[in-house]
């Protein structure tokens, strides 16, 4: 058994001329049978595990959970069907690899490698045929044919590209520069849309807010586009802490008694940010750590953002609810080429 073991067909690639170390299974029938049993054991385990995975699927409720130490309360099908299936498949692989390593011939063989280039003659003949074929077509000689063909071919993809035009509308000035905020639009809380009284915002307070007409706009539009631009944060600072604002006059400031409204859309890449540190008055973006000073006109104090957070001018209406004085005076969100 062991003597003829690398019984390699003489017509097959020849064994490498390197001293070969025989394996236990090559020399010792006991080791050989042990290896055989190990491989069969792995295949047998695979069979049982795969059957088990099907049984688990069949006999478990789809949302049955069970507490497993370390993992937590897990879904039975996910964890146990997956585990038995995964281990079963792994055993197939492990068995095959073990078989190859222990029992299949492990004498390395040599195959010659022929140069990937052909001989000179063949190459010359190929080049000649190629040149002759091209010459026969006349494409080199008949310039007018060549040029007219190239012209036609160059235009051929054009209709296909033109057809992509309706992938989307052309960007318009209104879309790029405006939101649904208007003079008199009430600020309402996000999620439950409650109007906000000035007195309801304490110093150090934060309100994530949207325009009151957002639900109607979304109902009509069916998209989240309006929301993506109009979300704001409302904060209140001690008036003496406000260093600067983006606009307004002493008689008609953009804040209302220290209440400031800023866009929630980062001017860097548009992540919504409301990570507001009330003591430092800093607003931090969790995506790329741009930091804005809300006490100082939303100025960038750290990070990759280049522009101030746009401020929304606000005041109160007759009933004391916060309203916008106008739309934002600059485009909100990330920069774009046409932005001045």
């Amino acid at each position: 058994m062991t003597q003829d073991h690398p019984a390699i067909d003489p017509s097959r690639p020849q064994a490498a001329e390197v001293a070969h170390e025989w394996r236990a299974a090559d020399l010792d029938p006991v080791a050989e049978r042990r290896a055989e049993r190990q491989v069969a054991g792995l295949f047998g385990a695979a069979t049982l595990l795969i059957l088990a995975s099907v049984l688990i699927y069949g006999f478990t409720d789809y949302n049955a959970t069970v507490g497993v130490p370390l993992l937590g309360d897990v879904n039975v099908i996910n964890v146990f069907m997956g585990l038995t299936f995964g281990l079963g498949v792994f055993c197939i692989g492990a068995g095959a690899i073990h078989w190859a390593k222990k029992l299949m011939p492990d004498v390395e063989v040599v195959e010659d490698r022929h140069p990937l280039t052909s001989d000179e003659e063949a190459r010359a003949a190929f080049a000649e045929t190629f040149a002759a074929g091209v010459a026969d077509s006349g494409i080199l000689k008949r310039g007018i044919l060549r040029r007219s063909l190239l012209g036609a071919m160059a235009l051929f993809p054009l209709p296909l590209i033109v057809l992509l035009r309706d992938l989307g509308p052309a960007p318009t000035h209104g879309q790029l520069n405006h939101t649904i905020w208007r003079a008199g639009t009430r600020l309402v809380t996000d999620v439950t849309y409650l109007p906000i009284k000035a007195a309801d915002v304490p110093v150090g307070g934060l309100v994530n807010a949207v325009p009151e007409n957002l639900p109607q706009v979304e109902e009509q539009d069916g998209t989240l586009n309006a929301r993506a631009k109009s979300v704001i944060i409302v904060v209140r600072l001690n008036e003496r802490d406000i260093i600067a604002q983006q606009g307004g006059t002493p008689s008609a400031p953009w804040d209302y008694q220290g209440i400031l409204a800023y866009s929630k859309v980062c001017t860097h890449v548009g992540c919504p940010i409301s990570l507001y540190e009330q003591r430092t008055h800093h607003l931090l973006c969790p995506c790329h750590q741009s930091t804005f000073d809300l006490a100082d006109a939303g100025k960038v104090v750290f990070g990759p953002a280049a522009r101030n957070m746009p401020q929304l001018p606000i005041t109160v209406d007759a009933e004391g609810y916060l309203i916008a004085r106008s739309d934002f005076q600059q485009p909100v969100g990330p920069s774009f080429w046409e932005r001045a």
């Binding site: 996910n78 964890v79 146990f80 069907m81 997956g82 585990l83 299936f85 995964g86 281990l87 079963g88 498949v89 792994f90 055993c91 197939i92 692989g93 492990a94 068995g95 095959a96 690899i97 073990h98 078989w99 190859a100």
Partner: peptide
Amino acid sequence: GFFFAVFGVIATLGA
């Protein structure tokens, strides 16, 4: 065999 081993490891992790 390696294919099955890779599949098995991925499935076990998925589980």
